[in-house]
Design a binder for these strands. Structure first.
Lengths: 361, 361
DNA sequence: TGTTAGCACTCTATTAATTTGAGTGCTAAT
DNA sequence: ATTAGCACTCAAATTAATAGAGTGCTAACA
């Protein structure tokens, strides 16, 4: 704790330097690098203190110092708070963002309705701009209200069920029946489902409702519950795990990640998107920076094992009222946090503006 | 050419041994390994010949021999032809396949309608079973007949267009209009599109038709052509590039691939699925083993640059009459071709049986 | 004439020994 | 409290030494 101003400054200098070079930084470097005008010997003493306090460490005797997770944490928190101040003071100047914003806008305009495509492109762009790995989750649809259901018979005994959710997310599910439905019944079913389910979320379509509906529809009871199951499956099923990643191979650019066989484990994780769900849903619950929805995990803090050597920054975007998605960056612990934060704010900003809250302004 | 029996046997032995060990194989090894009862010295002479002929080479003087692409080619072709004979002689014994077939069947049964899921799981299973990288392409839908179109108004001015193709492939496209459509018109449009387009393939829905339809529908002309565009977009657009990969990180298991920075390039390629299209569509045209649709690319033979150090084996599966998809394996040149061929035949067999030609038997 | 034993030679891989240099910790002087 | 100075440490790079696998060639052999 009680870090005096000078120690803070030195720590800051060590970290900044390490972010840039990726090499352990020594006392002489700091002595020149800062405006403190202290000799390397003094810096050495201070660094010894900082090490004892747990903010930095040396990979081996007679090497420079490297920040610990704790050190990074201090640095990042500090950065976040000063950034906030700056933001209060004045709307951030847009000059430096202009270019990437433009690309983003283009991506958005090109294909308005295909959210999936937009998000994929988004991930790609993020990865390219930052040189880290990016990941984006589809907006969680299960908190989304059902807007419209349509049953159509496409083959004998094959029912196509098309579902539209608030936010115009479309789902399809094919239902195999053991009998043919006549037009009359189909019409009735369509009416029934639309009337009953309209405006409900997945959670609200629960077992009680299934029982209820089945009862009310007499002889069709069984059929109704079968279809209801299909609807629930379609909305819920694969949806939670829809995650796109991009730039996985960027990790090869950072020796501390690509060296050991962790690299392979990391990429495996990215392939097995299931693991990533933790990352993105867990953090939905946690508070983080509540105003921006930004979460930073440093090293051991991440819930995913194969990323213990990385830092992960996630942000929330609002797709439609109450429907959130997550977007994140994975990189080495010595990532350029400033840049990453900017990039993420940019993207979420644009997404919000295109789909979510921004529209209403 | 003119490889006498003995040379052939030696070459075979060299390759087999190399496939197993991954190490250059020397004359002494062969002398013991084979039943030729020749001294290492004799083998050496023969190997010198084989090297001159271009079938093997040594990475450096005083190392054993390694097969060249040409060597592999001979080996593989030979294998293919003898396999075929065996197959003619007797239906292959199923004992050794039993287990993997079961898993596959389970995958299939679990989710019959979600082709996408099935294929993804398939790719995953293939990668796990072989320890190589697998890739699967969605069946090409653009040769597929249109079965059913449905237009629905979900918001003011927002039209949801649901399309069902032969084989029950479902597509959705959202159309943004600058005016509201009344029920009457919608009904008319639905009728019109279904009547006109039913049974046509993407190719057949061409410009002429667009003009025709627009003309015939008078004041609705503009609207009709707009919708038609959406339909074409929905069927054609992203569809050609739908490719799933799995087990990308398996390449780290093979030093000859993971060593250099080619590994990273390879994984990049897998990420950028566009490149893969070449691999899978090109080979649709080529003949390959015409009976099984199996294609083997060895090293330099592959059309994808980042795979020049690999071998790629692709197979065709029939999804529905005339609708094909591709499935492939990427591994080191010294992959276990036997195993890979078996695995692929298994999978395509199952797919055919579930969806395609097998059903009719 | 084809095969083989034997030997000199080549080249990689491994291990050991040496050198270099960055950086520290500590002490004594300012 | 700060600093100059010096001895010490350790990783990384360089060089040297050694071992071993495998070849090519020659001369002998059946």
């Amino acid at each position: 704790m009680e870090l005096d101003e000078r120690k803070k400054k030195i720590l800051q200098a060590v970290i900044k330097n390490y972010l840039e070079t990726g090499e352990p930084v020594g006392s002489r470097t700091i002595s020149k690098y800062t405006d403190l005008n202290l000799s390397s010997a003094t810096i050495r003493n201070e660094m010894a203190d900082l090490e004892e306090l747990g903010y930095i460490f040396q990979p081996h005797t007679s090497a420079g110092r490297i920040p610990t997770d704790m050190g990074y944490r201090l640095y990042v928190d500090d950065m976040l708070s000063t950034r906030e101040k700056e933001l209060d003071k004045k709307d951030r100047k847009l000059d430096d963002k202009a270019e990437s914003l433009k690309t983003m806008q283009e991506i958005m305009d090109k294909r308005v309705d295909r959210i999936e495509e937009v998000l994929k492109d988004m991930a790609k762009m993020l990865a390219n701009n930052t040189n880290y790995t990016s990941l984006v989750s589809m907006p969680q649809a299960n908190k989304n209200k059902l807007k419209f259901v349509q049953l159509t018979q496409v083959d004998e005994g094959k029912l196509l069920c098309t579902i539209v959710l608030e936010g115009n997310i479309v789902k399809n599910e094919m239902i195999q029946l053991d009998r043919v439905i006549d037009q009359q019944t189909l019409l009735k079913l369509n009416l029934l489902f639309n009337n009953t389910l309209n405006g409900l979320t997945l959670q609200e379509i629960n077992f009680d409702m299934a029982a209820n509906m089945a009862d009310q529809s007499g002889e069709l009871g069984e059929l109704v519950s079968e279809i209801l199951n299909a609807i629930v499956a379609a909305i819920g099923a694969a949806d939670g795990i829809e995650i796109f990643t991009s730039g996985a191979t960027n990790i090869f650019k950072y020796p501390e990640l690509s060296g050991n066989e962790n690299a392979s484990r990391l990429i495996s994780t990215l392939e097995e998107k299931e693991m990533l769900t933790n990352l993105l849903t867990d953090s939905l619950e946690e508070i983080g920076d509540s105003t921006t929805g930004i979460q930073i995990y440093i090293g051991e803090e991440t819930p995913v094992n194969s990323m213990k050597d990385c830092s992960v920054v996630t942000a929330t975007y609002e797709f439609e009222d109450g429907v959130y998605g997550k977007i994140g960056i994975i990189g080495p612990k010595r990532m350029d946090y400033e840049k990453v934060l900017d990039a993420l704010k940019n993207v979420t900003g644009s997404l919000d503006q295109k789909f979510g809250k921004g529209k209403k302004k």
